[in-house]
């Protein structure tokens, strides 16, 4: 069922990773992503893998959940690997047949790309698994708050994100309900013909749009009734507090990053 989609789903828990300050978690994720893409040696990827593995063990998130989040990108991975394999030239040819030529450079790049993307998804999904959407947007708001000085509406952007995230489960539930209701009226979603499937989308999309617009206008009215007027003078119920654990983990991330840069320079 649609409900089982894991994209950005929070997995409640009380592990070390869960308790970290979300601001630090975002910064660490940023460092981690940079680390993956800067490193161009096998050892760099291994360092990245060790980093993910450490975070995964500390977070107590079942490995099943991580695999579940990687599964949807497998088609994209396959597609780009095929392209990389056949169209990267240079290096020693390993295999040649008529116009098809695979070189060792192509194999090297393809493997690097696959490992990088898998690590990237695994690492970033750990961030969303261990941090509730509210904490995440709160942290983003705080991290971006210096931009207020140059008139960027940081609070409004964060509020929009909060609302969008808040309504993802609601809309998924709504979609599920609409699909069930239309199935009850004989819509054939499991039909084999492509045309049937396309036709079946209309009775689902239209009610979904209608209800999304209705919800948006109801929410706007409710916010106005409570005199919402943006971020000015607003205080937070939950203050973000950083602890020693946060600094320690940031330190570890920087250490990993430094070693990646070091290895790069050595080569």
């Amino acid at each position: 069922m649609i409900k089982d989609i894991t994209l950005g789903q929070y997995f409640p828990g009380d592990s070390t990773v869960h308790r970290l300050d979300p601001r630090f978690k975002i910064v660490i994720s940023g460092i981690f992503i940079a680390m993956l893409f800067i490193g161009d040696h096998v050892i760099c990827l291994e360092i990245g893998a060790i980093f993910v593995a450490m975070a995964l063990i500390l977070s107590l998130i079942p490995i099943k959940m991580i695999i579940k989040s990687i599964r949807p990108i497998i088609p994209i991975l396959l597609f780009t690997s095929v392209f990389n394999l056949f169209f990267i030239s240079g290096g020693m040819p390993l295999f040649e047949w008529k116009f098809i030529k695979i070189t060792d450079a192509a194999v090297h790049t393809t493997i690097f790309m696959i490992v990088r993307i898998i690590l990237l998804i695994a690492g970033t999904s750990l961030l969303t698994y261990t941090t509730s959407p509210i904490a995440l947007t709160d942290a983003i708001e705080r991290l971006l708050s210096p931009l207020k000085k140059i008139k960027v509406p940081v609070h409004d952007l964060a509020m929009m994100m909060t609302i969008a995230l808040r309504f993802i489960p609601t809309l998924i539930e709504e979609t599920d309900k609409i699909i069930s209701a239309q199935k009850a009226r004989g819509v054939d979603l499991d039909g084999s013909k492509l045309m049937d499937k396309v036709k079946a989308i209309v009775p689902i999309i239209i009610p979904l749009f209608v209800s999304a617009v209705r919800r948006a206008s109801e929410l706007a009215t409710a916010m106005e009734c409570r005199c919402y007027r943006g971020g000015e003078g607003r205080t937070k119920m939950r203050q973000l507090k950083s602890s020693i654990a946060d600094y320690v983990s940031l330190g570890i991330a920087i250490l990993f990053m430094a070693s990646v840069i070091f290895i790069n320079v050595l080569n």
């Binding site: 309900k177 609409i178 209701a181 009850a184 004989g186 009775p203 239209i206 009610p207 209608v210």
Partner: peptide
């Protein structure tokens, strides 16, 4: 089975999508 057992969901008005009432009733 779904044609033999008709199910009207809670708040069924949110499943309406056609441009006329006639077409919507005729959908099933």
């Amino acid at each position: 089975v779904r044609f033999k057992v008709g199910l009207v969901f809670q708040y069924p008005e949110y499943q309406i999508f056609e441009d006329t009432v006639y077409k919507d009733i005729a959908f099933g």
